[in-house]
């Protein structure tokens, strides 16, 4: 298969490679960039474990080809903490016990990242709808909702 050259900025660092057009973005992130925080939980675009931020939007990276991200900016879970300090959403998940096995966590946090960008003060219902593209099998979601509320307050400087 004819390979194409791509350059994708992930967490503000450029990654260049010759890839097949059929290579999924999630495999580019995991296998070529070596950023294995982004996970694969299904093959039908349901679970959202592969969620990353692409040019400001949360996308399921299993349902995009890497070539579609050529020249664009991606943020993954690895790019969230700054100078060793956790992002308020990461901190919220920790304080509120919003994770157990940790497999959905990176995608869930990225979905929450976009949610809070769009809606800095979401209600419980808005949070639940906002993360409904992300499946979790361990937590029952309640603590994830609390984690996102915590992050929302923290980001507004309320705690």
């Amino acid at each position: 298969m004819q390979k194409v050259h791509v350059k994708i900025n992930i967490n503000e660092k450029p990654y260049e490679a010759e890839i097949e057009p059929r290579l999924l973005l999630v495999h580019f992130i995991r296998d070529i960039a070596g950023l294995t925080g982004t996970h694969i939980g299904c093959d039908t675009t349901n679970c959202g474990a592969c969620t990353v931020i692409l040019n400001g939007k949360a996308v399921k990276s299993c349902t995009m080809f890497a070539v579609q991200a050529n020249g664009k900016d991606v943020i993954t879970i690895e790019g969230l903490a700054k100078d060793g300090k956790l992002h308020p959403i990461q901190e919220g998940f920790w304080v509120k016990h919003g994770l157990q096995c940790g497999y959905c966590t990176p995608g869930m946090i990225m979905a929450a990242y976009q949610l809070l960008k769009k809606n800095p003060n979401p209600s419980e219902e808005e949070i639940r709808i906002g993360i409904s593209g992300n499946l979790c099998r361990c937590t029952g979601y309640q603590n994830i909702v609390e984690a996102i509320k915590y992050a929302s307050e923290k980001m507004k400087g309320e705690i």
């Binding site: 294995t36 694969i40 879970i77 940790g102 497999y103």
Partner: peptide, 21 residues
């Protein structure tokens, strides 16, 4: 107390089988 294991999971630094290369 907060979980000790969370520090790696929260930052994408867990090591699951498919992460092994």
């Amino acid at each position: 107390i907060r979980r000790k294991e969370d520090t790696r999971f929260l930052q994408g630094k867990g090591m699951y089988v498919d992460d092994i290369k």
